[in-house]
Design a protein around this nucleic acid. Structure first.
Lengths: 114, 114
DNA sequence: CAGAATCCTTGATGATACTG
DNA sequence: CAGTATCATCAAGGATTCTG
């Protein structure tokens, strides 16, 4: 799993985008929000096109940044659930706003975020 | 100037992040907002660490995406001013909140976004 | 002043196979 | 099921120089 090297943020906007930017972070946070809780495999199916490597890596980064909680059940077969932290939940109204903004401008291909 | 190859967005959240993600877009939009209007050179000084190539490239992408207006004055020396479009202004509350969210979490190094 | 042109580096992402 | 482990690629970003 490749390590991510975020350079020191030069301001709060920079800081924030370093944490929720990237190809999949927005969608991951949003999808977990709409389902309240999601398992690894469910995320894998929701985030179209993501590889297991990128999913794991991105989930770990979000966890380290205090945006989501990873709950492991010691069962066979394995079960891991992901939920949002309070910190991440504070972003939801605004990601929602962003979603509507994007929706207005997508024009042709209207595929809904789940 | 390298071209950016955004793959087709799979949903509105994806679409939005493709447009305002990237290393400098958030800061550029925010700085123009706080100053109402900025010239190329002023942006160059505000966006710490950016190279002229990246600044030009990013500004053009934002322009193509209908987020900012580039006004050229036919004078010598040259003068170019950048302002936000209405579409971009709709994003300001989002970026502002993101800024506060980031500010709360930055801890040690508190550098203000201009 | 506001950039364009070139060349180059590397980090983000992808493909595939494997495992407790 | 929920990941790891490798290896490969490629586009985002950087350094530098030049110009109308």
């Amino acid at each position: 799993m490749t390590k991510k090297l975020n350079s020191d943020p030069v301001c709060a906007v920079d800081y924030a985008f370093q944490r929720i930017g990237g190809k999949y972070k927005g969608r991951i946070i949003w999808y977990i929000h709409t389902h309240t809780v999601l398992r690894y495999g469910e995320l894998k199916r929701s985030i179209v096109g993501i590889t297991p490597k990128m999913l794991t890596q991105t989930l770990r980064e979000l966890e380290e940044d205090g945006l989501l909680i990873r709950k492991v059940y010691n069962e066979v077969p394995p079960k891991v659930e992901y939920t949002l932290t309070e910190s991440a939940k504070e972003l939801i109204p605004f990601i929602d706003h962003l979603r509507e903004w994007g929706d207005k401008r997508m024009g042709n291909y209207k595929i809904n975020c789940q």
